[in-house]
Structures are given as structure tokens and as C-alpha cells.
Amino acid sequence: MQTAATTKPRARSLFDRTAKSHRTLWHNALRQFMRNRFSVLGLCLVSFFIFLAVFADLLAPHPYDKVYFDRVLLFPLEHASHPLGTDEVGRDYLSRLLHGARTSLFVGLAVQSIAVVIGVPVGSIAGYMGGKVDFVFTRVVDIMSAFPGLLFTILIISLWGGGLFKVIVALSITSWLGLARLTRAQFLQLRESGYVEAAVCTGTPEPRIIARHIIPNALTPLLVAVSFGIPAAMYGEAGLSFLGIGINDPLPSWGKMVGVSNAYVRVYWHLALFPTIAIALAMLGFSFMGDGLRDALDPRLIE
């Protein structure tokens, strides 16, 4: 863009001001986030969970798939080297829980990454182009949301068989819809905004309008959606594994651990207790964090 020399200082000061207020959005958000006890608690839980998942190899006392035939179904503390006991085939429960965190986090992150990679471009194209493209997009999304989500996933899994990667793909097929719809709504709304109109008037090329004016403003709702999408995918994985059609055997999954424990739980309560606590804490952590993010990034609430 060419700007006349005389207007340059003014333009720069305008730019400075926007830059400053941009910084304060995140600044405010951080302060708001830290003021909320629930969201800080959520952040701590999530950090702890990520730490466990990343260092599962180092933290686990035994390999997660090592079977001790002479130590089947031990209670916690019954044997010195198995602080949380062993499962129905004699694998160390603590190690399986730690690796379960890894499975769960991996599924959550992978499903959401795929959802972002598909949903955001598709949604933005539909929202920005409008017209026929948008019409086709809306119909496709309508049809796909009419499918019963979980049942659809079960049908897909029975088509392909279970396993980590197939579970991820199956969950991704339904999870990008929400993000695409949200992105489209953001684009529709922002396309009409004053600053985009101003940018069009000054002859800003379209890719630049999208990159500089629309995407940064659409970012915060998407961020919030992703922060809720991760636990939703983890939830989905736990459900499928609970039904016995999710993660395949040597690999541990909290959902599967709860599902398998059903048969033993009347006596061996620890088999259900620990994965339950793990699922609950991880889900709570992500949800509190997401809630905190949403409140912190909503400029209407900051005062």
C-alpha cells in the first residue's frame, strides 16, 4: 500500500494504538484467567496430565504390557513393586494408568488437529465465498449432523476394525463439523464488519484481508472450541473403548480399563476406582480450562 508522506505519522500512530489494544486483549485475558480459581485449577490439572502423558515411559515402574503371571489381580500395596495393584492378567496398574494418559491425550490432540485442519479451511471458504459454495457446505453439514454421531462412529469402526489410528479417524469424521460451522459463522459475521469494509475500500487484496483482519478476530472463539473439543474426543475414545471397540489390547485406555473392570469390580474395586478418578480429573481439568478461556477471551465480560 502506498501512503502519502504527510499521512504517514498519523497512520503509524493509529497502528500503534491498535497494536497496543491487541496486546491488552491477551493481557486482560491472562489476568482474567488467573483471577478465576476454577480455571487455574483446570490449568494445573491439564499440565499435570500432560506431564504424565509425556513422561509416561520414565514414570512408569513397569512396561505397560509386561505380564506377571504370578501376580494377577493384586490389590494396591499388596506387593511392594505394584503400588496400585495389578489387573486381570497381571499387568502393573500404575504403569497402565500412566500410559492410558498418553493414549487419551494423543487421541484428543490428534482428533482436534484433524478437525482444525479440515474444519477451519472448509468453514472459512464457505463463509467467505458465500453463494453456491456456502449452499453446498450448509447442506453437507446438515446431512452429516443428522447422522447419529456415536452410532455412526460405531458403524465406521465395525467397518474398519478398532485400533488407535482408526479410532482417531472415526472420531475425526464427525468432529470437524462443529469447527467448520463455527468458522463459517465467524466469517459471515466479520465479513460485514466495519473494518473489513474499510479494508476492502482501501483496496486491500483479499488474502491479506483474510489473514490480517478476519482470522485474528475469529481466533478466540475457535481457540475456545478447540479447548472443549480435546476433552470431547477423549470422552469419545473412552466410550468406544468401554464398549470394547476402541483401542486394541496391549495399549491401555482408561475407558477400556473401566469397561473391563465391570466383570471384576465387585471384589477388585481398584480396577474401577483408579481409571475413574483419572478420567474425571482429566475431563474436569480440560473443562475448567476451557470455561476459563471462554470467559477470559470474551471482551464483553472484561471490566
Binding site: G239, F242, V258, S261, A272, I279, A280, M283, S287
Partner: peptide, 13 residues
């Protein structure tokens, strides 16, 4: 929040 995030199969169990 607890009700929302804890899977129903866990609650049922």
C-alpha cells in the same frame, strides 16, 4: 460440571 464431564458409564458403574 462434574455431571457433564464424567462419562455416564462411570457414574452407572
Amino acid at each position: 460440571m462434574l455431571g457433564v464431564v464424567i462419562p455416564s458409564f462411570v457414574v452407572a458403574l
